[in-house]
């Protein structure tokens, strides 16, 4: 039982990390980034290509992260401009549709150029004992990265000046502008950050199982569910939701098995939303 729960936590931290990037961009810019999973895969493919070309793993991974971040930044500076000129539901809808188009384009380019590319990072070393359960080094490293990044993000948002600027724009765009915070700059920063985070998820995922070219849509849907269950705009909420869903997932996979697990997972997500309509740690607004 303990091993199953541990596996669930490991998976859940990945879910959480996945949700964070999406949740920040939505909370901040009101854009539901439907190309989020595609950005993740893009980063993974770039990293895999660099590794194929003989680059050291760390450098290849960093290149992958930078590539995803750069594409996200470029999207914010070009395509999202007309979106930001709108408010409320108009903005959400247009942003969602444009990002859907972007998702198709990235998917199309990747599947066309690199149909069989996949990123697998082999983390060597023997399984490590954690509280009497043997864990693979790969999953431990992945969890450590997820936890570390989560902690850095929380601290950054709470204490750093730039982080406070981000939170102020999430709370009230016009108010922040009146206080001298430039929403456009904050948005560009967070958009790029979300691209990097997306690629980071693909990288940590590849430590336990290969990330293939067509994994984008699954990443996006999972990220959406995690972000919404956790409360849009809340970093710790995303991690909490991720761990909750991760544990539900592995426990049900272990005891019930097969296809029912997905249904249990989705059911858990739906029930959480119905019980807490603004998400676990949501601020009570959409």
């Amino acid at each position: 039982m303990r091993a199953v729960v541990f596996d669930g936590v490991v998976l859940g931290l990945q879910f959480g990390l996945l949700g964070v990037g999406l949740t920040l961009v939505y909370g901040l810019a009101g854009v539901l980034n439907l190309a989020y999973g595609q950005l993740a895969v893009l980063g993974a493919v770039v990293a895999a290509l660099r590794i194929d070309a003989g680059a050291p793993t760390i450098a290849a991974v960093l290149t992958g992260l930078a590539a995803a971040g750069a594409v996200a930044l470029a999207l914010d500076l070009t395509l999202m401009r007309p979106v930001y000129r709108r408010r409320g539901e108009d903005r959400v809808l247009l942003g969602l549709l444009l990002m859907l188009g972007v998702a198709f384009i990235i998917d199309g380019v990747l599947v066309w150029r690199y149909p069989i590319e996949a990123l697998t990072l082999r983390i060597g070393g023997d399984p490590v004992d954690v509280l009497g359960t043997r864990m693979r080094t790969g999953s431990l490293l992945a969890s450590a990265i997820a936890l570390g990044v989560g902690a850095v993000l929380v601290v950054f948002l709470r204490y750093a000046t730039a982080g406070k600027a981000v939170r102020s724009v999430i709370q009230d765009e016009e108010g922040a502008q009146l206080c001298g915070v430039s929403p456009a700059r904050v948005r560009a920063f967070v958009f790029a950050l979300s691209g990097v985070l997306a690629a980071l998820v693909a990288v940590t995922r590849s430590m336990t199982s290969p990330v293939t070219v067509n994994a984008g849509i699954d990443f996006t849907i999972l990220a959406l569910i995690v972000a919404v269950v956790g409360g849009l705009g809340s970093v710790s909420g995303a991690f909490l939701a991720g761990v909750l869903l991760g544990v539900v997932n592995t426990v049900s996979a272990h005891y019930i098995g097969t296809y029912v697990t997905t249904i249990v997972l989705l059911g858990a997500a739906a029930v959480t939303i119905v019980l807490r309509p603004s998400g676990l740690l949501g601020a009570g607004r959409e």
């Binding site: 569910i225 059911g267 739906a270 939303i273 119905v274 998400g279 959409e286």
Partner: peptide, 19 residues
């Protein structure tokens, strides 16, 4: 539930049905 939340609950229904 707001727009996005309704979307996710119905999306969960959708994916469950597919499964």
């Amino acid at each position: 539930l707001g727009v996005i939340f309704t979307g996710i609950v119905t999306l969960a229904f959708s994916l469950s049905f597919e499964n």
